[in-house]
Design a protein around this nucleic acid. Structure first.
Lengths: 64, 64
DNA sequence: ACTATTTGTAAATAAAACTTGACATACTTA
DNA sequence: TAAGTATGTCAAGTTTTATTTACAAATAGT
């Protein structure tokens, strides 16, 4: 599962810690997701998408 | 997290077991998701969405 | 009524998300 | 040079929750 989180965050000019704060998870969780270490839960994916005013598919890409 | 799985499946006229089969999970998992007992993993959500030619947001609705 | 098929659910397991804490690196800037 | 901020990572632990197995209930068909 790839994602465009890194660039989106850069565009918005917010830090991992801020994103973590706004989504209610730890900074390391955001980092891990960005680095593709694991996928967010569906609810968290929704929260992130909402924060960027985007659809989940616009942010996350299933590689299959 | 609500979802329209039940009706979509009805429209497609497939059984829980068939949907389970095509998404690679157990029949009970599909049932549980339909009944809202828990949310699918993000990869599974993608698989389901792809199967119905829909976006995740068109199938699942985050209630917050 | 009987059988087959579909659905519901409890209980247990497996898996994975997420946390905490710590430390290291890089970049800035004062 | 020192201090502050942002990111990377890792180990280890917790805890949530997705998923399975097994069994019960319901529904449909003959």
């Amino acid at each position: 599962m790839k994602n465009r989180l890194r660039v989106l965050r850069a565009e918005k000019e917010i830090t991992q810690a801020q994103l973590a704060d706004e989504t209610g998870v730890s900074r390391q969780t955001i980092n891990a997701i960005e680095k593709g270490k694991f996928d967010p839960s569906l609810p968290l994916a929704f929260k992130i998408a909402r924060l960027f005013n985007m659809s989940i598919e616009e942010i996350f890409e299933d590689e299959d």
